[in-house]
């Protein structure tokens, strides 16, 4: 066992402390019964942004949250270091679940989405092909004509890739599960992203919900008239509803514009946002986390190259 792993212990302790805190906070509440794992189609993924509105840390300064998440993401991706990745995963998950008071079940549920992609994507990194069995491989799978084999290096590369990707996902989740989209847009505006892009983002975001709503209403009404009774009819109804959606969207788009104009829209889409002052203590904590990760990165890469 390499000594480098001891640097995972502080984040792990933090995570455990958070778990205890959360358990104490919710003590005595009745346990919810969950209906299995995985995300529900059509619902859970679409209402992902509702968590940002419910999060206990939605009151933090949005610029701070976006900045911290991006820094952690970059550290995780650039360091390509198992210890750093694990630390990022532990720290960001603790922030989201404990400080943000999000249900652990929901959080893990959301993580199943990238897991599917990750597994599918990393298989090709993990396995190799050869005509003959390879000596010294961790596993050889004889497929008569050829052999699929896994080496210690490929296992290591895959784990590293997983850690990196997961760290990045957790860092982004920390941001998106605690920051309302409107606030993310305004942070981007302050970063001088072109105004046109920001306004498009704002309108698209708002419009997505209208379209989904319209589509689900059309689907329901088609279903109640047996529009989805068999495969052929379903295809037909789906096509019809999509075509209709286009027309409805164009019509609503112009009504939308009328309503905006009637409230004096003149090419500038600006909204009032709540002032969320930056807390010095928070800045200090973030600085500590980042310097700790930098330190771990430095210590673990200087010695053995195993972690990175």
């Amino acid at each position: 066992m390499d000594r480098g792993w001891i640097w995972v212990i502080p984040p792990l302790l933090l995570c455990l402390a958070g778990a205890v805190l959360k358990a104490c906070r919710h003590r005595g509440e009745p346990r919810h019964h969950h209906q299995g794992w995985g995300h529900k189609h059509g619902e859970a993924t679409l209402s992902i942004d509702i968590y940002a509105y419910m999060s206990k840390i939605s009151g933090w300064n949005p610029g701070f949250k976006v900045g911290l998440s991006v820094i952690l993401l970059l550290m995780c991706v650039i360091a390509n270091n198992m210890v750093v990745s694990l630390s990022v995963i532990l720290i960001t998950s603790t922030v989201t679940v404990v400080l943000g008071d999000m249900s652990l079940h929901h959080y893990l549920n959301l993580l199943t989405v990238p897991v599917v992609f990750l597994v599918a994507g990393s298989i090709m990194v993990l396995i190799n092909f050869s005509w003959t069995p390879v000596a010294g491989a961790v596993a050889n799978l004889n497929c008569h004509w050829f052999t699929i084999y896994i080496t210690a290096t490929s296992v290591h590369t895959t784990l590293l890739l997983w850690g990196r990707a997961f760290g990045a996902v957790c860092a982004m989740y920390m941001m998106s599960l605690s920051t309302m989209s409107g606030e993310i847009f305004s942070v981007l505006r302050r970063c001088h992203v072109p105004k046109l892009v920001i306004e498009l983002m704002n309108m698209m975001y708002r419009y997505i919900f209208i379209m989904l709503d319209t589509q689900s209403r059309m689907k329901n009404s088609a279903q109640s008239r047996l529009g989805y009774c068999d495969f052929k009819t379903s295809i037909y109804s789906f096509g019809q509803s999509m075509g209709n959606l286009l027309i409805v969207s164009m019509k609503r788009g112009s009504q939308f514009y009328d309503a905006m104009e009637s409230r004096g829209y003149d090419g500038d889409l600006v909204f009032l946002e709540e002032e969320k002052p930056l807390d010095k203590k928070m800045l200090l904590a973030a600085g500590l986390v980042i310097s700790y990760l930098a330190f771990v990165w430095f210590v673990t890469t200087r010695g053995a190259g195993y972690y990175g």
Partner: peptide
């Protein structure tokens, strides 16, 4: 000022506060 018939055609911002501020900001 017009209060439109279909609220969904009028609401534009992603928070209620932002939405109400749209007119005064303009």
């Amino acid at each position: 000022g017009i209060v439109f018939q279909d609220a969904d055609n009028q609401i534009i911002a992603s928070t209620v506060m932002g939405e109400v501020s749209f007119g005064p900001m303009n």
